[in-house]
Nucleic acid binder design. Sequence first.
DNA 1: TATAGCTGTCAATTTTTCTTATCATAATGG
DNA 2: CCATTATGATAAGAAAAATTGACAGCTATA
Lengths: 213, 213
Amino acid sequence: MNLKLLLAEDDDDLRQTLVEALEMEGFDVYACVDAEEAIEAAENDRFDLALLDMIMPGATGIEAISNIVRSQPNIGIVISTAFGTVATAVDAMKKGAHEFISKPFDLESLVMTLKRVHAQRTTPPSLAGEKADKVFAALANPIRRQTLLKLMVHKRLRFMDLCRLVEVDNHTRFNFHIRQLKQASLVEQSESKVYFLTTEGKKLCASLFSEQN
Amino acid sequence: MNLKLLLAEDDDDLRQTLVEALEMEGFDVYACVDAEEAIEAAENDRFDLALLDMIMPGATGIEAISNIVRSQPNIGIVISTAFGTVATAVDAMKKGAHEFISKPFDLESLVMTLKRVHAQRTTPPSLAGEKADKVFAALANPIRRQTLLKLMVHKRLRFMDLCRLVEVDNHTRFNFHIRQLKQASLVEQSESKVYFLTTEGKKLCASLFSEQN
DNA sequence: TATAGCTGTCAATTTTTCTTATCATAATGG
DNA sequence: CCATTATGATAAGAAAAATTGACAGCTATA
């Protein structure tokens, strides 16, 4: 199964060379002469990876990132550049790029970089597993979400403190809900009975917050 | 309400200057002489921001990022450096840094950078809103999650095609579930009745996938 | 025209989730 | 020691979610 690569490179010779070489390496390459063409392609087709030249006439590779990521949030993006600065690198990463590669580059490095970026981006979907069932069922309830929120802020809390923070006046009601969070492995207790988020709980909560950006 | 800043800077004079100046700007500064101390502080206390010098004896600011982010996934991280390269910038961003600032810097720039990073990282918690209720309720069901997954892969699908992909043999059962996704604004239909993910649906799904990294 | 397939609505029924009451044990303070 | 508070388990009943069946309108094809 070939990886689909969206290539944007204004230098004709280099673009042709890359197409031929990368297709020999097993990529399905869709080549664009500029960023605008790449943006349009990303809206109409699905790609695993994008290799964008930073400096192109018209919109730059960096300017194209946001648009491409908007169309395809899971695409892996590599920026190629001869003149990289820290500021442009940071800007590109913030927009969604995953890796930089400096011109001139050898083909072997490029292929390895592309495959590594793809491997890192490809995540096995576990949305249907039994574990995911418990986690998502736990998240469906507002009391439980509030509980996670309070634990994010305060890190360690005792049962009744937490119950009062969440504003549930019936402790057995709260007990039922925090048991669901424990069974979903989002929350656990120390020996002294203090509640805190598990590592998985922290990651999930951070993701749900940062998702609001 | 002051922002809590974790500062790691091995240069004594600069560190003292920064502490005094930043506290005058309204930050609560916890100063560390090295990365190890900063890592430990992040495990024991909550911070809004971290300002880490890139080059320090022992572990570098960059090496500390992963540990700090693991303890506090929502912290805003700024790296200060006199010698930045594209490679180190990209590496730091991948580990979780949000911004670079080059030495020598003026205090005004630093403060603006810190506040901007914090403003971008602070997200209004909407885990308890009515809209969130619908979204999370929709995600609680395995059929609905599978539906989102299929739409991520195929982008546009007709009702019966989607129903068969999700392997639900009773179409009215599937209809009930896809209605819930529509009501949660995760999925919508074109005029030709084709189903596709909304922007919000795409972002949420991408977050849930990338969360598995 | 008749038939098959697609897509959708509505409501009765079933299943799952949540609330509440009761009870229990442990810990703390006067 | 006693009273109070904290924390937790269990089960019945209430509420919410999901399933299922009946029906409908639309489109395409023979």
